[in-house]
Design a protein around this nucleic acid. Structure first.
Lengths: 121, 121
DNA sequence: ATTTGACTTAGAGCGCGCTCCAACTCCCAG
DNA sequence: CTGGGAGTTGGAGCGCGCTCTAAGTCAAAT
């Protein structure tokens, strides 16, 4: 698979794919064809798809890098990887709760404006 | 109220308070004491508290600036302000839903690692 | 008189996550 | 053999939201 095809498939740009590789997010650098172009394997594409989902849930690049490092260590890092993901999950859940509660002020204000618009105060 | 007191009360730094003012988030620049220092009114502090809550729910500075501009226009902008907040609320709710769904991959992986750790596969 | 400390300003710097640029190589179609 | 298109690299630039620095003013405490 070419970089353009992976970009297409994952929704990332080719720029971003090279950036991810540079910054240590790949399990290993994708193999190159005779012309020096990257030839992504199916496994590469799957890994990148996983990265995009972790990213979408707000995982920082640095944590994804740690996750990639663990994944390179193989079966020995299952526990560590699980812990990393659990920590991330807890972060996301906390963030969701925070958003919910910080949204209340908007709700309150919206209600206030509604009443003012209707001339109730 | 001094800038330090408002910082204390709102959890922002004095730096950030000046930045917010520079960038157009205040209804009007806080009055100055004889020594040129800002003397925040109770109303200023309340407004800043509202800003921090909007900010905490992820509203971008640019949107807060628009909100401040509307607020400066007074009663005429109730409808516009309400619409702005409703748009923000919709954004936040969408973001929460997105987070929930993007979290599924972490859940799935956590479960996978659990089973692998227990030696089931 | 001096030091301390809280404030002032304009403007620089930073961390994050991209995003793009310049200059280059390579291959293929016309 | 020429042009176009897709890829390569190192490194610069950007948008956001702060965050900090330098140099200065002023007031109260010693």
């Amino acid at each position: 698979m070419t970089i353009a095809q992976v970009a297409q498939r994952t929704g990332l740009t080719a720029h971003t794919l090279r950036y991810y590789e540079r910054t240590g997010l790949m399990l290993e650098p994708p193999p190159r064809g005779g012309n020096g172009h990257r030839r992504y394997t199916e496994r590469d594409a799957d890994w990148i798809a996983l990265l995009t989902r972790l990213r979408a849930s707000g995982m920082p690049i640095a944590a994804m890098r740690r996750y990639a490092e663990l994944a390179r260590r193989g079966r020995d890092s299952y526990v560590a990887r699980k812990e990393l993901l659990e920590a991330h999950r807890a972060d996301v859940i906390a963030k969701i709760e925070q958003l919910r509660s910080d949204l209340e002020i908007a709700d309150y204000k919206i209600d206030l404006y509604s009443r003012r618009i209707r001339g109730e105060e």
